[in-house]
Amino acid sequence: MPLVSIIVTTYNRELLLKETILSILAQSIEDLELIVVDNFSNYDFLKLIDSFHDKRIKSIQNQNNGIIAVNRNVGIQAAQGKYLAFCDDDDLWEPNKLELQLPFLESNSADLVYSGTLLFNEMGMNKIHCYQPVKTLSQFFGYNPVTLSSVILRNLKDISFDENRVFAGIEDYTLWINLWMRGFKFHMIEKPLVRFRVSSTSFSSVSRSNNEYKIIKFKMSLFARLLSWKERLALLYFTSFSIARFTLLKLLSR
């Protein structure tokens, strides 16, 4: 049994995926398995995986019909590790990421550990991005404070991403909320341990606004009844703001 199972989902990003895999294999913690789930890319995915000559890599191909959560869950089902970690196929890990995160899990002081993030692109942009540590439910209002590629958590075998198409694009956010409500202890390392690649395809204003709008709908439908009156007012404010922003950006993008 490996200590950590790392799940990467991918589609048609051969060169970026190679960089991602190399950053994971360069971890100072070697007791890991890397599960790469491919949505039948248009290049020879299996040949690429074989080129690493590393038995810790498991390759899976599965059709997800446009719902990334499906292939994330395929990876979780295949995972044998004590802990689960995730990385998008265009993000990069710092070599000591797992080494710095694991002690909090091993000491039972946390059930989920995430970190600050370094936003970067090919134009030379580098910007550290770090929210305040999550301590209350209301901190999830308006944004997702937990970067997927920075997360490592306990593998409890009943963890899964919501495959509902309504939540496509925010399946990680809905999982963090559900784990928080289940009593998971979150811990944040402020140091950026993951590099998040910002591109025109992954970080457009319209797609961000679309996801924010989905986030608001999710919060209203799933756990608004659990909020205090102050949190309900905050939710109402963010709902109004996000709907207006989403509508405006949609109009401007036509």
Rank of each mutant, 00 (worst) to 15 (best):
Tyr173Glu: 02
Tyr173Gln: 01
Thr174His: 00
Leu175Ala: 02
Trp176Pro: 00
Ile177Phe: 01
Asn178Gly: 07
Asn178Tyr: 03
Leu179Cys: 04
Trp180Met: 02
Trp180Tyr: 15
Trp180Ser: 00
Trp180Phe: 07
Arg182Gly: 00
Gly183Trp: 15
Phe184Asn: 03
Phe184Ile: 05
Lys185Ser: 11
Lys185Gln: 13
Phe186Ser: 11
Phe186Asp: 14
His187Glu: 12
Met188Gln: 15
Met188Asp: 13
Glu190Asp: 14
Glu190Ala: 09
Glu190Trp: 10
Lys191Glu: 13
Pro192Ser: 06
Leu193Pro: 11
Leu193Gly: 11
Arg195Lys: 11
Arg195Gln: 10
Arg195Ser: 06
Arg197Gly: 03
Arg197Asp: 12
Val198Gly: 06
Ser199Phe: 06
Ser200Leu: 06
Ser202His: 07
Phe203His: 10
Phe203Glu: 08
Val206Lys: 08
Val206Asp: 11
Ser207Lys: 04
Arg208Leu: 09
Asn211Gly: 02
Lys214Asp: 05
Lys214Val: 04
Lys214Leu: 04
Ile215His: 12
Ile215Met: 15
Lys217Phe: 07
Lys217Pro: 02
Lys217Met: 06
Phe218Thr: 02
Lys219Gly: 12
Met220Asn: 09
Phe223Glu: 02
Ala224Glu: 15
Arg225Trp: 11
Leu227Phe: 14
Leu227Trp: 12
Leu227Gln: 15
Ser228Trp: 15
Lys230Gln: 15
Lys230Tyr: 15
Lys230Gly: 13
Lys230His: 15
Leu233Gly: 06
Leu233Lys: 09
Leu233Phe: 14
Ala234Met: 12
Leu235Ala: 06
Tyr237Lys: 09
Phe238Met: 04
Thr239Pro: 09
Thr239Phe: 07
Ser240His: 05
Ser240Ala: 06
Phe241Cys: 07
Ala244Asn: 06
Ala244Pro: 09
Ala244Arg: 02
Ala244Cys: 12
Arg245Pro: 03
Phe246Pro: 01
Phe246Thr: 00
Phe246Asn: 04
Thr247Phe: 09
Thr247Val: 05
Leu248Ser: 13
Lys250Val: 04
Lys250Met: 07
Leu251Ala: 10
Leu251Glu: 12
Leu251Arg: 06
Leu252Trp: 03
Leu252Arg: 02
Arg254Phe: 08
Arg254Asn: 09
